[in-house]
Design a protein around this nucleic acid. Sequence first.
DNA 1: TTTACCATGTAAGTGGTTACATGATTAG
DNA 2: CTAATCATGTAACCACTTACATGGTAAA
Lengths: 188, 188
Amino acid sequence: MALEHAILVSLLEKPGSGYELARRFERSIGYFWTATHQQIYRVLKRMVGDGWIDVHEVAQQGRPDKKEYSVAAPGREALSQWLHEPVEPESIRHDLAVKIRGAAFDDPAVLIREVERHHRVHSERLAHYLAGERRDFTGPGAAGTLDAGRELQHVVLRGGIAYERMTLDWLDDVLATLHRIHGPEAGG
Amino acid sequence: MALEHAILVSLLEKPGSGYELARRFERSIGYFWTATHQQIYRVLKRMVGDGWIDVHEVAQQGRPDKKEYSVAAPGREALSQWLHEPVEPESIRHDLAVKIRGAAFDDPAVLIREVERHHRVHSERLAHYLAGERRDFTGPGAAGTLDAGRELQHVVLRGGIAYERMTLDWLDDVLATLHRIHGPEAGG
DNA sequence: TTTACCATGTAAGTGGTTACATGATTAG
DNA sequence: CTAATCATGTAACCACTTACATGGTAAA
């Protein structure tokens, strides 16, 4: 499991509340990891209990108070230890691939609409990632002058971009295949 | 959840035992879905209870008896219904991406070895997929003469191949980035 | 006789999802 | 007055992993 470690990395990059972490998991960190606020609050509580992170209440004006979390020494140590352990290269788990093979036993036309829908979603994600890249990693301060942390954030983002591009190409391939096996029988 | 549906598709392609399903999940279906035998036996039991699949004991010579499962009418119906429902386009969940961002707060040299290890694993997977493609989808019977089921299996396999190639390219990018931020300081 | 493969399961624990619940502030 | 955003949590359930457990056959 790595949610604890993802939280540690995020808090090292910038301390924040559970709510803020949840928002980050919807955005930049969500390129490669997702977590809901319920999950985050539960883990945060455990991490405080384990002494990995510190909390302090922050009063705000015009907003509810929040608890700001930051990484404590044992948390940094735990992260370092995890970074030294190997993790399993993970496999993809695609509902859509199951559906594609299932289409052999059902109407492929239904699947065509589903694949087109996925294509739209992945196009939007790609556009979103590219916008983030333009915003955060181009212009003044780019081209070799970034610090290590930003370089690493950028290479992770490039991974997300490569993933979306590959997926879009593959979905085109899937659509062409579906039309090939469906079209001749049903007239396109 | 789609483990039930993945099992239905697999049993429609060819009836088999829980053990055989587990092996298939390590191989072809494992390109996009994983499941252990414990999980499969549990789900199989539930599916029999729900009337989605039928069992019959098969005596074998030189081997333990097995229970062969095949899809029943309600199972086919359930699969069809699922195929007509939209599924969420899923996001990647990469421990390695967490580690890469975490490397900003630790020794990047450790991460270089980890990334190289992942590179080797993905190279092996790619070689394995390509061997499967040569074995099952080339030679006599290929080039437009495949039936729909095999065409669909092939396009899913091409997805696995594309994923591995993209991942290898990205891991090269990660390594280059790590050397860039680490090399100048440590002379590596 | 040891290893590998065939074959099926239980039990305990962990992690993740969904639903429920509260309450303040700001903008329309 | 309504909706959106900020902010934090509990409870129940479900999926998945890991460890344990059994027992037969075939090949080295």
